[in-house]
Simulated scan of single mutants.
Amino acid sequence: MHGVIAEEWGREVVDNSGWQRRWEVAFSSSFERADNEVHTAAVAPEMVGSTAVVAVLSSCQIITSNCGDSRAVLCRGTDTIPLTVDQKPDREDELMRIERGGGRVINWNGARVFGVLAMSRAIGDRYLRPWIIPVPEITFMTRNSEDECLILASDGLWDVMSNEEAGEIARCVLRRRRRYLMADGVSAAQVVADNLTEIAMGRNSSDNISIIVVDLKPKRKRQPRQ
């Protein structure tokens, strides 16, 4: 995805609609292109698909793009802010879209499109077109000095942990690692991701657990001993 997005962002812009619109076009075309490549290159059969959550960081912005029920949350000070909204079949606007197109949402161990898929958007899963679509939702968040970290994870984490709990664990681990400036060669962000993964597995999460944590604080340099 990162390669496709970089290429789409680099394409020549023919209008002056602003940088936010340019990112929206780049993300939308990237997700569509990734979906087409999965299909045309026969990367996976039509009954296979994936969610995708992507974040682009600049010095002043966090730009997120989500397709499915993976999620990005921002830990800012003592707050945990969701940057994406899960695209679930029973979300009111998604339910209306699916039913308007002649689809059905059936409660089978949770709301599922035709009783099969527990998300309403994805890359792949072409056997459920036109109800499952590869169209992302894009958000913009201005960064500030209180930003601690960014958590991007699949529903294997969010099925067993709330945003607030994940944020509190992340803040606790980051605070401890920064205070003692651990010299084990493992980044603070990786330790947070490992902790969240272990907790989700300990709670018997039954879905894929993929977690990326981005430390948003500048790295502190060790002070030389006097």
Rank of each mutant, 00 (worst) to 15 (best):
G202R: 09
C75D: 07
L174A: 06
V186E: 12
R179V: 09
V14P: 01
Y180C: 13
R21M: 13
N66H: 07
L117S: 00
F31N: 02
D147H: 11
C75T: 03
E32R: 12
L196S: 00
P134K: 00
I81P: 05
I211H: 00
A44Q: 10
R104L: 08
G124N: 05
I169Q: 06
D79Q: 15
A42Y: 06
V14Q: 12
T142K: 14
C60W: 07
V25F: 05
D207S: 06
V186I: 15
F27E: 00
T142Y: 13
L150R: 03
I133V: 11
I5W: 00
M201G: 11
R104Q: 13
C149A: 15
L150A: 05
E94D: 09
C172R: 14
G101W: 14
V213C: 04
A188P: 01
N107W: 14
S70F: 02
F27H: 02
D15L: 08
R104D: 12
V73W: 00
P134F: 02
P218C: 10
S50C: 15
V53M: 05
A122W: 01
D194R: 04
E146Y: 02
D79V: 05
G77K: 07
M201D: 12
T80P: 03
V186Y: 08
M141Y: 13
V213R: 02
S65C: 10
V113D: 00
M47T: 12
R176H: 14
E37R: 14
G167N: 06
A55M: 02
I199K: 04
E164Y: 04
N107R: 13
R176G: 08
E168W: 04
R22C: 12
V25T: 14
V53P: 02
R100F: 10
D147N: 14
V43M: 15
L216R: 02
P89C: 11
Y180D: 15
G167W: 03
L152F: 07
I132Q: 01
A44Y: 11
A189S: 15
E99Q: 15
T78P: 07
P136I: 07
A188K: 05
G49S: 07
R171C: 04
F31H: 04
D159S: 13
